[in-house]
Design a binder for these strands. Structure first.
Length: 490
RNA sequence: GGCGCUAUCGUCUAGUGGUUAGGACAUCACGCUUUCAAUGUGGUAACCGGAGUUCAAUUCUCCGUAGCGCUACCA
């Protein structure tokens, strides 16, 4: 039975790198008819952020990754929050103490700090000096009885090598002499990551540990722990890191790193997932677009690449745009709703009778081809919603403050005024009739109308715009532009 | 400093002991469109360096270089 897990610590928001790790774990479990477990690693009380767990769960849920076991859902191997498993770790660590594979350490933090300073000053590798490794049983007993503050350290062998067999990278050898006597239990009674993750992965019967590359160097420590306990090893797979455009580890400084940021910016979860899946994995052929179900049936660890990948927003934009364009109208409207509301709010639109769903959807359809994320909606819809347009841009004045603008607009207004109903077709016919009447054609004609209607030199087709506005709005805008032209042409 | 990982177009990547080194994004040109997009066609663009193995290395080996990670009572 394949069992994978995603084990974030609740120190903030869900990092997109973490989301990718979660995704690969999820895909691998689903692909192999296994189970995907979510576990919260909150063993560092100081770094705990209120609300982080809830946020994590919500964002994961939004992304479409659904754990089979975890906090809130439950499961046979719970609890799934490490701070609720303290007794378990204490129990297992005392087993190691009994077997002399771990020992009490009474070194105060101050001494360790000094030691480290001394070592780095002499450019020797900072290591614990095993000061408490060989304390006599009597001394340990005495100091424990006098309630001296202590931690528990793993007794790491002094020589030999640990070979880790990684599913993505192959065999990797680590000299054991490089490994410190790791802290297993902290003075506050909480376990360190190393202890907790080994105990939990074993107890939760995790078969494949798929995690970030930053864990590769500590894997031999974990292997040592599995051995000390006499447990079978899970399989390991270490994923490359996600990077900034300058190849440094993906960080807040250079853009958005929280999955939540992308959600807020109007990226569809399906698009983010699709993009993330391709960042380090490929199907072996030319396909680029995958639904979650398709990813599940195609995924394999063999096709995961070893090198770090830059999180390039350009391609995400392309994928997201593609997903937006393929959205059925009803979904397009519901996904865009928050951003439409923002647009309406910005322009202080009160007349929701006029801007009803039908009209909003038509507007959305008019602009959606150029959209790479929903957050562009307020900017792209501004000219539809604004009460008054600005004609100050040079490329607008080129057409409006021109000898041809007054005859064009005057004639068009008259022709439209004669129509009882204005839609895309009748509006376009009216423009063509302007051409017939006054002989102005081509760009000067059409761009003047566009400028008058939108205050911009580019946008959706005139046909579409006119279909969205009603007769009165069309007339009002043309008249406003005509007045502007008149006032500037003397 | 020590240990480890990684190295193909600007980016994500495919691939091979002999290939015109393939695709996608981005970019450029053209077509479509009386605007902009979307879309279609085409173009520019890459095997980190040096040795070795070999008839032949981008591919295998070693060395170097660079980038990254780890080196906490953080995960």
């Amino acid at each position: 039975m394949v069992r994978t897990r995603f084990a974030p610590s609740p120190t903030g928001f869900l990092h997109v790198g973490g989301l990718r790790t979660a995704l690969y774990n999820y895909l691998y479990a689903r692909k192999n008819n296994g189970r995907f477990i979510l576990r919260i690693e909150d063993t560092d009380q100081r770094r705990k952020v209120p609300g982080a767990v809830e946020n994590l769960l919500a964002t994961l849920d939004w992304s479409g990754i659904k754990p089979d076991e975890g906090p809130q859902i439950g499961g046979d191997a719970g609890p799934y929050v490490q701070s609720e498993r303290l007794e378990l770790y204490r129990q297992y660590v005392s087993q190691l103490i009994d077997n002399e594979q771990a020992y009490y350490c009474f070194c105060p933090a101050e001494r360790l700090k000094q030691l480290k300073g001394w070592q780095t000053a002499r450019k020797i590798p900072p290591r614990y000096d095993n000061h408490c490794r060989n304390l006599s049983a009597n001394e340990v007993k005495r100091r424990l009885e006098s309630d001296e503050q202590h931690i528990i350290r793993m007794k790491v062998p002094t020589e030999g090598a640990i070979e880790v067999d990684d599913l993505i990278r192959g065999k990797i050898t680590f000299p054991v002499s490089q490994i410190d006597d790791q802290v297993l239990l902290k003075s506050d009674g909480f376990p360190t990551y190393h202890l907790a993750n080994v105990v939990d992965d074993h107890l939760m019967q995790i078969s494949h540990v798929i995690r970030g590359e930053e864990w590769l160097p500590s894997t031999p420590k974990h292997v040592l722990l599995y051995r000390s306990f006499g447990w079978d090893l899970p399989k390991f797979a270490h994923l490359s890191l996600l990077l900034n455009p300058d190849k440094s580890k993906l960080s807040k400084r250079q853009g958005d790193v929280a999955a939540e940021d992308y959600r807020q910016k109007g990226y569809l979860p399906e698009a983010l997932i699709n993009f993330l899946a391709l960042l380090g994995w490929n199907p072996g052929d030319d396909r680029e677009i995958f639904s979650m179900d398709e990813l599940i049936s195609e995924f394999s660890l063999e096709r995961v690449s070893k090198s770090g990948a830059i999180f390039g927003v350009e391609k995400l934009n392309w994928i997201n745009g593609l997903y937006i364009r393929n959205l059925p109208p009803a979904q397009l409207l519901s996904c865009a709703r928050p951003y439409l509301d923002e647009s309406l709010r910005r322009h202080n639109v009160k007349n929701r009778n006029y801007w009803n769903d039908e009209r909003l959807l038509a507007m959305l359809i008019a602009i959606k081809d150029g959209l790479s994320s929903f957050s562009e909606i307020p900017q792209k819809t501004a000219f539809f919603l604004a009460d008054t347009l600005s004609y100050e841009a040079p490329e607008i004045q080129e057409y409006l403050i021109s000898p041809t603008s007054i005859p064009i607009l005057t004639t068009l207004i008259r022709l439209i005024d004669e129509e009882s109903i204005i839609n895309g077709d009748t509006f376009v016919t009216a423009i063509k009739n302007v051409q017939k009447e006054i002989g102005i054609k081509g760009k000067p004609l059409w761009m003047t109308v566009r400028a008058a209607l939108t205050g911009a030199s580019q946008g959706p087709e005139i046909h579409q715009i006119a279909a969205i506005f009603d007769r009165e709005t069309c007339l009002a805008r043309l008249t406003a532009a005509l007045n502007y032209a008149k006032s500037h042409l003397g």
